[in-house]
C-alpha cells in the first residue's frame, strides 16, 4: 500500500499579525511557524495505517524553505520520505492551484490512500482535499473523526452539526480530510527525531507541477472592525474581580 499525507505550515494563531506591504496577505516575518493543527491528525492517522498495513508513507508540503522544519516533524512522527514542493509564493495560490499541484504529483504515484487536514488554520477554505480527490477521480470524505481500514475498504465517521456523526464507507483509493479529535497525535521521540534527519527529503520546484492559473485573488487583507460596546479591563486580579462583580450586578440578574 502507498499512502500520501499532505501538510501545511501555518503561523501560530496567537501571533500578532501584520498586513504585508502589498496589502493582500499577512506579513510572514516575526512569526512562529508550526504544522497546521488539522494536519497533525492527518499525519497521525497515516502513520497508524502504515503501522497496520506495512505501507509506504510519503508526506508532501508546499512552501518556502522554512516548511522543511515542519516536514521534519512529520518524518519524526513516522512518515518515510518527504516531498518538498518549493514555492516562495504559495501563500498567494488559491485552493484550486494548490490542489492541482498535489494532484499532479499524486497521479504519477498511484496512492491508495491520501490524508489531508479538513482545512488550514490560516486560509481556512476547506477545499484542497476534496478538489485534489476530484482531480484524481477518487472518492473523498470530509471532516472525519474516526477511521478504520479493512479488506480494501475504509469505514469512517463524518462529523456533522449538533454532535451527530454519519457512518460512511468507501473503497480505496480514497482521500479523507481529518477533523480535530480524530486521534491523539504522537509527540516525536528523540530517537525518531534523530532518525528523521536521515530520511529522504526530495525537493521539487513548483514549476514542475503547476499547470493552472488561480481562479481567485485576494484584493485586500485587513483587521475586522471591533464591535462597539465591549469593555476591556486590565489590572490587579482582586480589583478586577470587584469591577466585574459590580458590572454583573448592574447588567445581569445572576448575582441577585
Amino acid at each position: 500500500m502507498n499512502i500520501l499525507v499532505c501538510i501545511k505550515q501555518v503561523p501560530d494563531m496567537e501571533s500578532k499579525f501584520k498586513v504585508n506591504a502589498e496589502g493582500c496577505w499577512y506579513d510572514s516575518s516575526d512569526l512562529a511557524w508550526r504544522m497546521n493543527e488539522y494536519d497533525e491528525y492527518a499525519v497521525e492517522q497515516a502513520v497508524q495505517l502504515k503501522e497496520q498495513t506495512g505501507a509506504d508513507l510519503t508526506v508532501l508540503c508546499i512552501g518556502p524553505d522554512r516548511v522543511k522544519e515542519t516536514m521534519k516533524k512529520a518524518l519524526a512522527m513516522g512518515c518515510d520520505r518527504g516531498i518538498h514542493v518549493t514555492d516562495a509564493e504559495s501563500f498567494d495560490k488559491d485552493p484550486f492551484a494548490i490542489a492541482s499541484i498535489i494532484a499532479k504529483f499524486a497521479e504519477q504515484k498511484s496512492f491508495d490512500m491520501i490524508f489531508t487536514g479538513m482545512q488550514s488554520q490560516d486560509r481556512g477554505s476547506a477545499q484542497v482535499g476534496v478538489l485534489t480527490a476530484e482531480m484524481l477521480g477518487i472518492p473523498s470524505i470530509t471532516t472525519i473523526v474516526s477511521f478504520a481500514f479493512d479488506a480494501g475498504q475504509i469505514t469512517v465517521q463524518r462529523e456533522l452539526e449538533g454532535g451527530v456523526k454519519a457512518m460512511v464507507k468507501a473503497p480505496l483509493p480514497a482521500l479523507v480530510t481529518c477533523q480535530l479529535g480524530l486521534n491523539t497525535p504522537r509527540y516525536p521521540t528523540l530517537p525518531n527525531i534523530m532518525k528523521a534527519k536521515k530520511k529522504e527529503l526530495v525537493v521539487t520546484p513548483v514549476a514542475d507541477l503547476l499547470g493552472v492559473a488561480v481562479l481567485q485573488e485576494t484584493l485586500s487583507l485587513y483587521f475586522p472592525e471591533k464591535k462597539g460596546g465591549g469593555v476591556v479591563l486590565e489590572g490587579d486580579s482582586a480589583e478586577l474581580a470587584d469591577q466585574l462583580i459590580a458590572i454583573l450586578k448592574e447588567k445581569t440578574a445572576v448575582l441577585a
Partner: peptide, 19 residues
C-alpha cells in the same frame, strides 16, 4: 465582493473571483 475570515477570524480578506 465576498469577504472571508483569515487566521481564526483575526483578519479578513476581500476576494475577487476570476471565473
Amino acid at each position: 465582493k465576498p469577504i472571508a475570515p483569515v487566521c481564526n477570524a483575526k483578519l479578513r480578506r476581500t476576494v475577487a473571483p476570476k471565473t
